[in-house]
Design a protein around this nucleic acid. Structure first.
Lengths: 352, 352
DNA sequence: GTGAAAGCGCTAACAT
DNA sequence: ATGTTAGCGCTTTCAC
């Protein structure tokens, strides 16, 4: 392996890689550290002769000086860290978006994210929280990969916490969650808007805010359109492709002309079943999903209309709430809307 | 909003939320800071009376003392941070796995990941690197979401860098990459193993290590099995569902009995085409993909056999190389194998 | 305008 | 066996 492949290890010339400090710059520029500090931080409120300023700046650039954030932090007491505890960082595409949103928003305000991954393990969670507290984080985002109630770990009591994609049943902390109900309503309305009145809903069997919320939204939409709610049009199945495939069979025995699926994966299974029966989408059956899972929704044949979960926005809003840039509702909650993504599974492209 | 929803802001009792310091503990325990430091760090090499040790420990627990990592870092010069620069943190499920692997491995060795997301933006990249240098990171992982050559940003020269899922054509840094060639060979071998000899390969049009590597692997496998390479069985298409669908049409005009698709998305398109023609998998056509994209591969009908990209392992290996726990090859590269995931698209479940 | 010096919380060498 | 103290790199008040 050539030498250049290992920078830090063996540098022949120069100062054995010790980072340049304020002292170094001060000495080289023939001024005091205070002056260098003022110049480095571009403090215009302090009087420093232009000549000095320019000279010092040159030395800073020449030496490649960079402030040591640890020292700065130690000095003025508070760090620019925000902790993010996630229960699944990559088991799912969703968690990534939360991180992404939090990351961008934090960055925008000069904060850096400290990410920890617990995979649902309580011990890992404890350690992660300890780590964050030891880094004197400004606050912590406690996030889950799917929308649910969650108990706040004891260690987090001493920190400023915002729950993301989850909430505390006992109102221990503020929370940012998606508006499942509005999402369900939006999905159903898309179907109603193109003339359907017999609309089935394939819901999940697993109890969750999504399950109840989307059902309510479905009912809201029907009610608003003056369509009677028919319980026999609501089916339950496990929330994956196989579940969707199975439930599709049941739906085909009803007179439904459109289906709202709890999620895109179920819609994918439903596509399979419809295709098997020689039925075409949306002519024989209009379909709308939920989640907007890119790999699935945008690339099924035909592309699936769906409603997106605002994961990116949840992460971003979490940071904003934490930094006090956005005020939650009176109950401490911030509800984020689920946007529709209309594609060709409701109205064929040519007709739209 | 109830008061308890905002911890840091307004605590009635106690010390206005100022974190407990060594000093505090020392005072409360009636010993010196040195002693507390020894106890807190559980330094068994220093003599501290058991009684004192116990007493101090009690105070530490009571007061909820936590060391200030900034101060510790400042003291002994080097941080426990590892930077991770990613060009797409959540645009794709892949980047997440790299982060996940790096995270776990770093954590295992007492390091914390500092993540920055550039979305390919050079300016963001510059800032991210500056941030990491200012945090005095131990080293930096520079990662890309798909395997490719990449130029190392200038700022990173001053850091110890390992490239993850990418490499420097000019050998400026060590790199960890997937073994595309072995992956292509593995995929093809799975088809050969179940008796196929006329095997088509739907490759991507985009030049990339994956494109050339997988083709080589395909040829390696054929050669090893004594099957002549027939260029007419290799087709090129854009690497998504639509591309796979289109190329499938071409493949059906050959006498191929099996297809190796450049990735799972293309395989998904191929499934669509085959279904359209009333052909069944694997009876009429055996299929193997690449990437092991969970949402797709595991849930197509039939579930797709594929080869996985070792993103998690790439991240983990990157950390190990950075920490000097794993030695790269002579050229500074670490090659990670792509494992096969056999499902029902090659041999029907009943027969396997 | 610029410099000297205190101190943020911690570790470790040196006293006692 | 425990205490004292000098910094780590930085910011900031207060002198000059």
């Amino acid at each position: 392996m050539s030498d250049k492949l290992r920078p830090g290890a063996d540098d022949d010339t120069s100062s054995a890689r010790r980072p340049v400090t304020l002292q170094d710059v001060a000495k080289a520029a023939g001024v005091s550290v205070a002056t260098v500090s003022f110049v480095a931080n571009d403090r215009r409120d302090v009087r420093v002769a232009d000549a000095t300023r320019a000279r010092v700046q040159r030395v800073i650039d020449d030496l490649g000086y960079r402030p040591n954030v640890m020292a700065q932090t130690l000095q003025h007491g508070r760090s620019r860290f925000i902790g993010l505890v996630a229960d699944a960082i990559a088991t799912t595409p969703f968690a990534g978006q939360i991180i992404h949103g939090a990351q961008d928003e934090a960055w925008k305000h000069g904060y850096v994210l400290l990410i920890a991954n617990t995979e649902g393990d309580t011990e890992a969670e404890r350690e992660a929280i300890a780590m964050m507290l030891e880094h004197r984080v400004h606050g912590v985002l406690y996030s889950t990969w799917f929308h649910r109630a969650a108990e706040l770990p004891a260690g987090l009591r001493q920190a400023d916490v915002v729950m993301v994609n989850c909430f505390s049943p006992t109102q221990e902390a503020r929370g940012v969650v998606p508006d499942e109900r509005q999402g369900g309503r939006t999905a159903t309305e898309a179907l109603i808007a193109s003339g359907h009145r017999r609309i089935a809903f394939i819901n999940a069997t697993t109890p969750a805010p999504a399950q109840t919320g989307r059902l309510q939204g479905y009912q809201d939409a029907l009610a608003a359109a003056g369509i009677d709610f028919d319980p026999s049009l609501v089916r339950y199945a496990f929330s994956d492709q196989e579940g969707g495939y199975d439930a599709a069979g049941e739906v085909l025995e009803t007179d439904a002309t459109a289906v709202f699926c709890y999620n895109d994966r179920m819609a994918m299974g439903l596509y399979d079943r419809l295709r098997e029966r020689g039925l075409s989408i949306p002519q024989d059956m209009a379909v709308v999903g939920f989640d907007n899972q890119e790999v699935i929704a945008a690339h099924l044949r035909p592309p699936l209309s769906t409603v997106g979960l605002p994961h990116y926005e949840l992460g971003a809003a979490g940071v904003r709430v934490l930094l006090g840039l956005e005020a939650p509702d009176d109950d401490g909650m911030t509800i984020v809307a689920c946007p529709p993504f209309l594609r060709d599974s409701i109205v064929p492209p040519a007709l739209s």
